[in-house]
Amino acid sequence: MDAGAISQYFPLYVEAFFLTIKIGWMGIALSLLIGVVGAFVLHFKVPVLSVIINVYVELFRNTPLLVQLFFIYFGLPKVGLVISADKCGVIGLGLLGGSYMVEAIRSGLSAVPVSQTESALSLGFTKRQIFTNVILPQAVISGIPAVIANVIFLLKETSVFSAISLMDLMFTAKDLIGLYYDTTECLLLLVLFYIVMLLPVSALGSFIEKKIRFGSYGD
């Protein structure tokens, strides 16, 4: 173990760390947006759109992110769609994550028993009130654990970005190993930075999950 090498590489990792976080969270924000819109489309059974969403979910849930990124980054420019590596990362992560989020949020919505809607109707709630005051609060609670699991999964998936030469943590480690052959030091830093990035999210996830189970409805 060479402390000099570690202190030399550290700034490079910090830079890569922030890039990874930036792209990761932008991708996750996009995936949440797609997830919410898609889940609502499926929940309200919007014609035509729900077919499109279903096809999209199946396509992206059943293919690896690496393949999706290669298609977006190397394939699409051939038909005239050139996208920079940064944007490609955000779009790829957003599309992959979106397909998972749609499922997570939709299952949260459908987990609310029909009796809840019926009871609210018999109490004279309007359709809109039922959705905002009865269904949504319960759906959020039952959907959140799955959404957090997806967030962790997506942050981990950012390591794939290195394949399209985005200078993320994985790319930096690979690059430095190739240049200086300080394999042990580079891998140690890589692991440390991933721990810093993911352990808080994971811990927060477990914490929220515990809190939320406490406030569950019905049985």
Binding site: T158, S159, L187, L198
Partner: peptide
């Protein structure tokens, strides 16, 4: 849960 599979691959392989 928190280590990307790619990182694990690199640790074992390299």
């Amino acid at each position: 849960r928190i280590m990307p599979q790619m990182v694990l691959l690199f640790i074992v392989y390299f």
